[in-house]
Write a protein that binds this DNA or RNA. Structure first.
Lengths: 343, 343
DNA sequence: GTGAAAGCGCTAACAG
DNA sequence: CTGTTAGCGCTTTCAC
């Protein structure tokens, strides 16, 4: 078949019916799996004409597209890649197809993406760029089910959501460091507007309070979840006096930036500074030293989100919003050690 | 609006027409941008009813979905993230929406993804998992235009494609190393089945031949484009005798793996081994030492692919397949130095 | 078992 | 400037 040979328009169910000498209805039944006398002839005709039912016609007829959208803020983040895998694994067992869209951590892109998808999908899994935002309302207003993933929003109706225990995870990291003897612990936190940013800082502060430790203002660095942000935040943190002996970094990308800065500036981990990252990463093991992190069930998070969405799609529309919170765990590697002697 | 309030079915163009006291046709014209007397009343009705035209009906009517698919083998590779950006930037200026699918370097997943997309999109940009594969035929058979990105295939009809000068880039890397005085240069190559895998090795061998240098068989490591692959390949390469004084690694992920191994094993770069990577990476600058790489215009590659696809979609179906090859460039950082004295 | 008719929501073509 | 008619490809009645 030659590229671009679109002259012969795609075969329709009527073409198949004629070729097989039956009515369109019989072909339709055959396709659905009903027992039909002319099965053989229809099958032949389908093959011969390379017939594929028109999705557009089906969608119009059914009022559904059998497609759902997954909108994430950063496709290059391995965390979201794992989420995609989880979503797809559940979707494969259903009738639904998943399409992916990337908002690039940008509110407007997110809105555009959602706008473009409305009408093409039956439901949406969204990891919102910003908590205070309400782009998800577009989806709800269109009458489509929405599931929030990883991040909640504070505005608008709360939809179903699948989150992780960020507070507990950050607390656990602090406890680990305190257990090693650290008393001056800093953090590189995420953006205020995002759930993981807010909650991981909360957990950090809770942990410190519980241990009876003070947190000087300059030991809390606000950043942006990007590598470059982690880099500059680390630079500032290192310049404080007294400087922390350990640091919790609130996501994988920023951790890489922070470690880059430390290495370039000859700071030894963990001898001079202990580091705990948030979110595991293929990278974490390859680093020198291998990185201690707070991990979470990533694929499972995606899978849960898809399950919730499927339930909504199946019609359980009256149930009140559900909120699933998955646990976080500490993965000990070698980036943490007892603090060195006081200078 | 309450989540799940789907009881009131979405408003149709007829609902709007009635509310505004005109015919459906007039509403249709208004929506298209034509001048219409009742514009105000229609606008009001549209807002009041939260009307959104049904994409399914439009698709059926037009015979087109105004959507294209981009199918990539690894969404976590920053290279493909950049490609996505390029594709989307061109798409935004057109009427088309882009949906993303991930094949995870798996032939079957690729086929499934394409199957699911047929009928939902008007065209496909595909970065094939394997050259010897012909999943793209599904697309062509469905009468849809196809553009190959980054990787070509050898089977089936050749579609339009956007590639880069892998051979030239790899050669350039070798020339750079030879210029520094290296004579024993090894390579960690990609999978045989993929275009970049094959071509980058070709370029490497060409460069060596041109410099009059021998390449012992054990200085060529076949790997899989993954971090873990780069790691183990580096281990093997380092154990050869005599070992190379420089190495070209055929993609970004494997380079990270190789560097991880070198660091864990205390091999100093570039003092003991010079390293050139393929594909730039936010990471390349953060590494210690910053990595010298062969770079290529990634966003541009995506943009070109989308441009080719748009042309096909506009109806230039007779033009013979085009093949765009973009240049690669050497980005010198600090991972290469003259070889140390012979032991 | 099978078929004929009707309609999902939208718009091109043809009147007015 | 506006409305009427017809039909995109499919499937759900309702008949036979």
């Amino acid at each position: 078949m030659v590229q671009g040979e679109r002259s012969t328009r795609p075969a329709t169910i009527v073409d198949v019916a004629e070729a097989a000498g039956v009515s369109a209805m019989t072909v339709s039944r055959f396709l659905r799996g009903d027992r039909v006398k002319a099965a053989d002839r229809i099958e032949e005709a389908v093959d011969a004409l390379a017939f594929r039912p028109s999705e557009a016609a089906r969608s119009l007829r059914y009022g559904r597209t059998l497609t759902v959208a997954l909108v994430v803020p950063d496709i290059t983040n391995p965390y979201f890649a794992a989420v995609v895998r989880g979503v797809e694994s559940v979707a494969r067992a259903s009738d639904y197809t998943v399409v992916l869209a990337n908002s690039d951590e940008d509110r407007d892109r997110e809105r555009q993406a959602l706008d473009a998808l409305m009408g093409r999908v039956d439901g949406v899994i969204l990891a919102p760029v910003d908590e205070t935002d309400s782009n998800g309302d577009t989806v709800v207003a269109a009458g489509l089910p929405l599931v929030h993933l990883d991040r909640a929003t504070v505005r608008g109706e709360a939809p179903d959501s699948v989150l992780v225990d960020n507070v507990g995870g950050a607390r656990r990291a602090v406890e680990h460091l305190v257990g090693l003897g650290h008393r001056r612990i800093g953090t590189i936190a995420g953006p205020e507007g995002s759930t993981p940013g807010r909650e991981r800082l909360e957990g950090f502060l809770e942990g410190m309070r519980a241990a009876g430790l003070e947190v000087p203002a300059d030991h809390v660095e606000r950043s942006d979840f990007r590598e470059s942000g982690g880099d500059t935040a680390m630079a500032r943190l290192w310049r404080t006096t007294p400087r922390p002996t350990a640091v919790l970094v609130a996501n994988n990308q920023m951790t890489l930036g922070a470690l880059g800065w430390l290495r370039r500036n000859g700071v030894l981990v963990p001898a001079e500074l202990s580091v705990v990252g948030f979110d595991d990463h293929t990278f974490a093991e390859l680093l020198d030293p291998p990185l201690t992190v707070i991990d979470r069930p990533m694929e499972e998070q995606g899978a849960e989100a898809m399950r919730l969405l499927l339930e909504r799609l199946a019609g359980e529309t009256t149930a009140s919003p559900r909120r699933i919170v998955l646990p976080t765990t500490l993965v000990e590697r070698r980036s943490c050690a007892p603090p060195s002697e006081e200078p």
